[in-house]
């Protein structure tokens, strides 16, 4: 469990004519055991937000703070692309982000590989796996560090529908069991409604346009009427908000 505080966050790339405003005065408060989805059209700064939150990018202006019980929180990150070291085996890729390579660490990595259904691929190189499998290794890597807060950037968008569905269920169970804070970027509204307590809506230009609370009991089945209605409501709201106009 962690607390995320974002105040007046601006992020710009380049200067002069090449200047791109990726995030424009973003304010966000997330704390406790919540699952927050971030949705919005592509190019609206969702990935940039995660990069700033995890410390890959520095903010141009404004403040970000991620704490866990008063100290800096340890993040886990599932990237849009797998980002595995091609020259290390799957198992070594997991171990790479851990503090040590003790027996417990290995055991834990093996357990999470099993969770994504790849327990027998630990000694393979990433190049020997399919794209979907690589993405699953990326997910296992993030989970295996048992982070205080988990950031996920469209982790299921490259997977087939069946695998995605089962991983979504896994993710939900895990979130429930471990009481983590999760910030989950997606452009799939159905996915957001199925998984989250809260949906933060970004618009082109990097501003937050809406913050929707989804108050339905878990587990949610996308085929359920309530869930389908909630999804339709969110989509209708998007129409009204006109997210593409700048």
């Amino acid at each position: 469990m962690a607390d995320i505080r974002v105040e007046h966050l601006h992020k710009e790339f380049g200067t002069g004519v090449e200047k791109v405003v990726a995030l424009d005065d973003v304010n966000l408060d997330v704390s406790g055991h919540v699952f927050v989805s971030v949705v919005g059209p592509s190019g609206c700064g969702k990935s940039t937000l995660l990069n700033v939150l995890t410390g890959i990018e520095n903010p141009t202006r404004g403040k970000v703070e991620i704490t866990h019980e008063g100290r800096d929180a340890f993040p886990g990150y599932v990237f849009q692309s797998p980002r595995l070291l091609p020259w290390r085996s799957v198992m070594d890729n997991l171990i790479f982000v851990h503090k040590d390579r003790s027996k417990e660490t290995r055991e834990r990595c093996r357990r999470y590989l099993g969770m994504v259904g790849l327990e027998d691929r630990g000694s393979k190189y990433p190049g020997e796996l399919s794209g979907g499998m690589q993405q699953r290794v990326g997910i296992a890597r993030a989970f295996s560090t048992e982070p205080d807060v988990l950031f996920m950037d469209e982790p299921f968008s490259h997977l087939d529908a069946i695998t995605a569905r089962s991983l979504r269920r896994e993710l939900h169970d895990m979130w429930k069991a471990t009481k983590k804070t999760v910030l989950f970027v997606t452009h799939d509204v159905g996915e957001a409604v199925e998984l989250s307590n809260r949906i933060v809506v970004f618009a082109k230009g990097g501003t937050i346009k809406d913050d929707i609370t989804v108050d339905l009991p878990f587990p949610r089945d996308p085929a359920d009427q309530d869930v389908a209605i909630a999804k339709a409501d969110v989509l209708r709201k998007f129409e009204e908000l006109d997210l593409i106009a700048t």
Binding site: P75, Y77, S81, V97, T145
Partner: peptide, 27 residues
């Protein structure tokens, strides 16, 4: 760059990044 970013997100210490990311990528 994307692998260096990844290492940074997971707070991997510099020495290990040199050994497991930088050197193999130069190979």
């Amino acid at each position: 760059k994307e692998l260096f970013d990844m290492s940074r997100a997971f707070r991997v210490p510099r020495r290990r990044v040199v050994r497991h990311v930088l050197l193999p990528s130069l190979m």
